[in-house]
Design a protein around this nucleic acid. Sequence first.
DNA 1: TTTGAGCGA
Length: 372
Amino acid sequence: MAQVQVQPQAPVSGASAVAANGGGVGQFPSTSLYVGDLETNVTDSQLFDLFSQVGHVLFVRVCRDMNTRRSLGYAYVNFGNPMDAMRALDVLNFTPLNNKPIRIMYSNRDPSARKSGTANIFIKNLDKAIDNKALQETFSAFGTILSCKVATDPSGQSKGYGFVQFDREEAAQNAIEGLNGMLLNDKQVYVGPFLRKHERENSFFKTKFNNVFVKNLSNSTTEEDLTRIFGEYGKMTSVVVMREADGKSKCFGFVNFENPDDAALAVQELNGKKFDDKEWFLGRAQKKAEREQELKVRFEQSMKETADKFQGANLYLKNLDDSIGDEKLKELFSVFGTITSYKVMRDPNGISRGSGFVAFSTPEEASRALSG
DNA sequence: TTTGAGCGA
């Protein structure tokens, strides 16, 4: 058999560091805090003095640009025990240093939670008197908060909106249900999921449209049927059922309304209704390119999710002997741990490309295989 | 009215 070369798909050192501290939430107690929103001139010793007030500080460092030595605006503070770290988070969060409130979180080097925006919510119409601490207190009733902030102008004045990110989607949902529309300091607040700018602007449901797409029609549904049913909602400019060359219905169609409000109402009222025992799906008609784009985005998203899942636990193998098949690969590597997937890459003729993948259930098992 | 930014040795 040819010599097998094994290399990690992602740096294994990074992956195991994540597993080791677990981000300070859940069952992994953490002693390492990330301190952000630092004013540029805040120093190590200022932080040391502040954090030493609540416990035994082992390590403090303001991170700086390698070349210019300018502060990057964040620091790490490590405590000797998790209780001190927890207390620091509780007591010192939002303490002003050089007149700017610091923001403390558990250190978590895995960026996926930060980037994904999961369990992240947006609050607006906040009374100006509600500061970071008040926001934190209000929302902590619903779960563990990873990060929380009231947006402020440079003078520190509240802009009347803010953000809370929870550790779990369920907590975020509960907070939205529990607080949206409630009075906080006599102002009715809006609480909803956080959306990035492009997500709001491109929001599928916000866009006005005239053309309605209907699918899951029965074979026998005709333009006349659609005209009769949709006619209830307003004046239409065209109605069509799409058909094969031989006239057989493709079971979907389009209804174009003169007035977008009528189109929206028709979708709202008729979506999910049953006709001839078929449950209709209605929506805004998308242009072909738009539809393809959406499918593409969805596909890329799911690719990314599987890539994240295998992060650190997936090994890329090359120089495999042609005689090694999927099962042999699994057999060879199962001595190092639990294999969750395995594959020898093959060309279209089924000939091994001499490379493949083995995924373990944990990054630790993968690194064992690397050194083994 | 108002939808951030963010992780080392």
